[in-house]
Nucleic acid binder design. Sequence first.
DNA 1: ACAATGTTTCGAAACGATTCGAAACAATTT
DNA 2: AAATTGTTTCGAATCGTTTCGAAACATTGT
Lengths: 352, 352
Amino acid sequence: MAKYTMRDVARLAGVSIATVSAYINGTAGVSERLTAKIAEAMAALDYHPDQVARSLKVGRTQVIGMVVPDVTNAFFPEVIRGVEDAAAVEGYSVILCNSNEDAEQEKRHLSTLFSRRVDGVLLACTDTAAAYGSLIQRRFPIVFLDRIPQGIPHAGVCTDNEGAGHVATRHLIGLGHKRIAFVAGNLRHSPHAERLNGFRKAMQEANIAVRDECLRMGDQSIESGYKAGLEMMRLAVPPTAIIASNNRMLLGLMRAVNELKIRCPQQVSIVGFDDFAWTQHFTPPLTVIAQPAHELGRKAMEMLLGQIRAGEGNETKRFENLRLAGELRVRESTARPPALQLVGKTRRKGGD
Amino acid sequence: MAKYTMRDVARLAGVSIATVSAYINGTAGVSERLTAKIAEAMAALDYHPDQVARSLKVGRTQVIGMVVPDVTNAFFPEVIRGVEDAAAVEGYSVILCNSNEDAEQEKRHLSTLFSRRVDGVLLACTDTAAAYGSLIQRRFPIVFLDRIPQGIPHAGVCTDNEGAGHVATRHLIGLGHKRIAFVAGNLRHSPHAERLNGFRKAMQEANIAVRDECLRMGDQSIESGYKAGLEMMRLAVPPTAIIASNNRMLLGLMRAVNELKIRCPQQVSIVGFDDFAWTQHFTPPLTVIAQPAHELGRKAMEMLLGQIRAGEGNETKRFENLRLAGELRVRESTARPPALQLVGKTRRKGGD
DNA sequence: ACAATGTTTCGAAACGATTCGAAACAATTT
DNA sequence: AAATTGTTTCGAATCGTTTCGAAACATTGT
């Protein structure tokens, strides 16, 4: 890298360094004569301004940090795309960090991000603790994404998880299911707690009791979905429908069902969360709640930019919380429960 | 963010700013008395050194850029994990960029990365052109990842794609297949070109002619895999086995096969590339070549660190090329071809 | 022709660290 | 007690920008 500085450009163009700066940033009028000279000099040297020097001076880096528990969870890459798309518009770059579901690592990452003077942080947090309170008090721009912390004022954007849980449940109830099970992820993570709430609410509204043995707490892993599926489908009276609170547990659940040679959806209906390429090519194609992952990322970044730009003042906006609707995509993993399927068939035969 | 500078720490500790720096970086002996005072002052102010100022002075940012065509392709998140793991060890952060398979965007990203004075770049390139030549000549630390450019000296790490294509093909040949098809991705991307080479070589070694209609050039999309699958399985004499050169086309291929009600592996064997959680839970569980994605990322980062550290001198190391072996994971989407299955069964009946 | 006004242009001081070489001090040898 | 050596400490310059205020210049109205 041939490294030229503004000084070199100035010298070559025969102007002062201040003028070059003014030209580049358009901060002051520069005569046509000098404009031409400077442009020429810059081209000749293939000069590119040093952003780190600039950052030091202006106190902004045009970089934000994004920390997620695990990029390897297909939900996050889509979010990242959204974030980048919104970031690119404003000339922002993003430093990506994996916290690996570990509060300690998360803290370390945040700390190095601050040292690097990022202008803000997007955080899918692992920690429920109010470890974030001090950040927010210091008015550091931060917006929470997907996972929302409890008990502190904050800005955040996530799927309307309660609504999504509710919709999924209503879909099953609408099909005639009563023995509906729910395989939750770690309830300390807001999405899973809220999806469970939505489930509970829908069940209550329909006056269906939630049986204890139809509630399983997993840990978001394939393995835990598998175990939950195995256990539940071996019950004396197994559920006729199961909701898996994330895509990994869904996968585990499907494996359990397949292994037990239980037919889906004939014997058990299943709905999961997240929609990826493979979910619709699965056998059977899976009914899921799709999260607006890309949009989630875009909105979060836009909110963060808002905070970054915010002079003082707009306190109201600072703690905005956005919840985007999930979308139920009905495919072939859900159907009427076994008992009703016959009724359904008879009816159709008679009716149509 | 209460922002304190080294000057504040120095003042509070009653020492010079140079001494604080010496203490922090351990560059010179600092007496116990002052050490204590400085540590105390730093703690009192919750001081964290400003990395951007530091970067400006020392000419290193401890940040690298990574540009991939699309994080949304599940292969890359795993690579990213590998990169981050290796980066973290040395205190490096990574700025992630999506080129979106677009040479223009890639160029823009590279350009902003340089402006930000990243210490090096990891690049899964879209462009086959020698647009990278000048970078390399300028000795800018760069290592290519997965996709390797042609015709210029470079450092790179990727899967041994030719070997992988060869292994996949040999697996099918070993099962007795002769009419083997290959659905390639964009051949301008080295992995696909090389996988195809491996396929050709294996076929040649086995003295099996590659039929034209059994070679399809896709574009890495699900759609193209689907189309290729449809077309080939509708041939008068369809192939008895198909290799899909990436995970997306594999998915499309499976859809085509399902739609045509062709049974896999009974009527057609299929092997794909990349191994994710869903591949083994597919119906049938898919035989694939797994790429050592995490390792790929780790090694690439380590090579990059090597280049960054390299004083002048070690020219040999500069253009090192690493090829890591893929691993064939035989599952249930491959079996003996239809004709032989009967023979197989009869034999078994008689023999066992 | 001169003052008043509005543009361009520039010199110099930051931003917050590192680093060089000299100054200050202590310990040792003569 | 002076000279020598080695260790701490510090002042000041520097990295490559931005930005403030003043200087230089051109333009206009009187």
